[in-house]
Design a protein around this nucleic acid. Structure first.
Lengths: 152, 152
DNA sequence: TGAATTATGTTGCAATTACAATATTATGCA
DNA sequence: TGCATAATATTGTAATTGCAACATAATTCA
């Protein structure tokens, strides 16, 4: 079944580029996994933890710890909501914002590498299809994380 | 830059489906990450660790430990090479082989979910493009893992 | 209106992961 | 032919990760 290679390729690309990014961001004092959160916080200042979790599909306990660490190390800061005592808004600090262009640059470079040899039309196609696939798996992830087994 | 969404979608799909798989394989006494190795060993009996590492793009120390654990728990067995004392061939045990159909079934189901709404032509296209992208990032991964910084 | 349920975030604990260093063996080269 | 280099795998260590349980607050519902 050739279709299975879709997910295998996705897994390989994700692991390879994640590993590369973690290694490359060590020079900015970002430890494993931190860049993933920091870049989203920079692009969505004021976001709350729950929205981040939904956006990037990570475990809530991992997110809690990474965000604590990013705050401790001065990359982000958290602000309580004025009305809703349950949520805290996350903002990048100056230090965090200064690193954002490097993360963008690395991400753009990795994208260039990954897309090498693809035409503009193919890039557009693969982008659209992956966006759809991402949306497709989203519901299953939420359900399984909430303890609802998938039936198959 | 819309192109950056390619890698973001890939990351989301990979994390979501990996998390789902780890949760679903707990019932087969497979712990986090183990299914990834076991399925490849079942499909490539006799493979050596180095080849597995290249195939799935994981850290060699992680691979060493996961394989040890899989052996300890009776899913695989290792055999020294007759000629080359440095390599060990990895085979699935009966126990390991019995779980293979379940891993395949889960993987097929996840593929079905991910590809929902895509036509056959689109599936073929995205498969081909992802295979190419996977090959594209492979060289960078090997270089960076060997300590060679990327220039950009 | 008050209890039940859901939402958001955190902590204890144990397992996993990866860096750095190490060990052993095979291969390359002068 | 012997030394240097590369290849394959492992271990010590510390950091990260996720399950299960927990805490607090908001929302739902009878």
């Amino acid at each position: 079944m050739a279709d299975e290679n879709v997910l295998r390729s996705i897994g390989v690309i994700a692991r390879a580029l994640d590993s590369i990014a973690n290694i490359e961001f060590k020079q900015f004092d970002l430890t494993r996994g931190q860049y993933l959160y920091l870049v989203r916080v920079c692009e969505h200042p004021g976001i709350i933890q729950e929205r981040l979790i939904e956006m990037i599909k990570v475990d809530r306990t991992s997110a809690s710890r990474v965000i604590q660490k990013l705050e401790k190390n001065g990359f982000i800061m958290r602000q309580a909501d004025e009305v809703n005592k349950k949520i805290k808004h996350i903002f990048p600090t100056d230090k965090g914002q200064r690193i954002y262009p490097q993360i963008k640059r690395e991400n753009d470079y990795s994208t260039t590498v990954a897309l090498q040899g693809l035409s503009s039309a193919q890039i557009k196609t693969v982008t659209q299809l992956l966006t759809k696939m991402s949306a497709n798996v989203s519901a299953d992830w939420e359900g399984v994380k909430k303890g609802q087994p998938r039936q198959y």
